[in-house]
Computed example of a mutant assay.
Amino acid sequence: MLTGLYGAGFLGRKIGRAIDTPFVFVDDTPSKVGTVIDEHDVTNLEQFSRNGPSHSLVLYVCIFQPGFSYLRKRDQIRATYPGLDVRPFTELFHSSASGVLPYLFFESPTDLSEKLGLYEKISRLLNDDLSRSTLSGHLAFRLTGQFEKIVSTPRRDLSFLCDVLSPLVTYVDAGAFDGDTAEDFVAMTKGRFGHLCLVEPDPNNLSRAEKRFADLCRPGRITFRQEAVSDVRGLMGFNALGSVGSSLDPDADNKVKTSLLSDFDSEGQLYIKLDIEGAEIPAIRASIDFITSRRPILAISVYHRPDDLLNAIKLLEGIEGYAFYIRCHGPAGEDLMLYAIPN
């Protein structure tokens, strides 16, 4: 039997270094095909399928990035190569590549099983049935590796949020990337808001955000700030990759200004979205007094670390009057968001 790892990028190479099974990389990038990466040949799907009858080939899809759907890719591959055994990378996480864990929100099923009681307590705090089914589906996906368990919702389908937003609300998008989430906010509110503040430390991402909003928003209604929300004010090393993977790194040579949540306060209703590549919990912890007194609406990314949701709820549940919702906006379990709405 021949094993293929589909995707010779970050995740595929990380898994490849962790397994002992002989394999080849399978990739669609023409410049990679025919090369050798980490001592493994790189081929494409057509060449891989020629290596024998389909029942003797196993292909693990090793791609996990925003907007990428394993289920859609699996169906596309099967349509062209009927009978090919296509499997998700999560099967390897639970077997021969378990040493890669933890990876983002993935952890060993044993470790996760020991926390299910804590998640049951969180479920009882949630304010609607869709939040509870979203959490249940996400946990089932993490336990089994089955993408079919995921319950996802479009980012613009947030009636519980729209119902409480003031037409003068200030929306602070911390970790704005290229402005895609802020654009969803503008569409969701039909342009009824006071001000947008896009906070993004990567200059290339921020430049793309400025171009995105050139025709979407009058200059007086939007501010762009090249900063990183953190747990301290000052300067910190930053890896500017020009992608969703840009993140703070104390060892990086490039420096970026870091700020606290309170540095983005304004009059009236305040709505803060935090998607800052795993730095969400320290940022909230450092600003908990500000959150307690100011009581902004919060949308917190809780998929960068296995315990992000547990830690976020632990920090916020003691603040009187917050209602909690959970939505997953990504087809592969990414963009799991905790929404905290003050009464």
Rank of each mutant, 00 (worst) to 15 (best):
F10Q: 12
P30S: 04
G16N: 08
P22C: 06
V42R: 00
F10D: 13
G16S: 08
D20P: 00
V24P: 11
L11C: 08
V36R: 12
N44E: 01
I19Q: 03
I19G: 08
G12C: 11
D27S: 03
D27K: 06
G16K: 10
H40G: 02
N44M: 05
H40I: 02
F23R: 03
G9Q: 01
I15Y: 09
D28E: 01
V36L: 02
V24H: 00
I19N: 04
V33Q: 14
L11V: 01
I19D: 09
S31V: 04
I15L: 14
D38W: 02
S31P: 00
L11E: 01
D28A: 07
K14G: 10
D27N: 13
R17E: 10
G9P: 08
I37F: 00
N44C: 15
V36P: 06
R13C: 13
F10M: 10
G34M: 07
F23S: 02
V26C: 11
V36S: 11
I37T: 02
I15Q: 12
F23E: 01
V26H: 12
E39L: 01
I19H: 14
A18C: 13
F25L: 07
A18F: 10
I37S: 00
I15N: 05
G34E: 09
F10T: 05
R13E: 09
N44W: 04
P30T: 00
F10K: 14
L11N: 05
F25T: 02
P30Q: 11
L11M: 05
L11R: 06
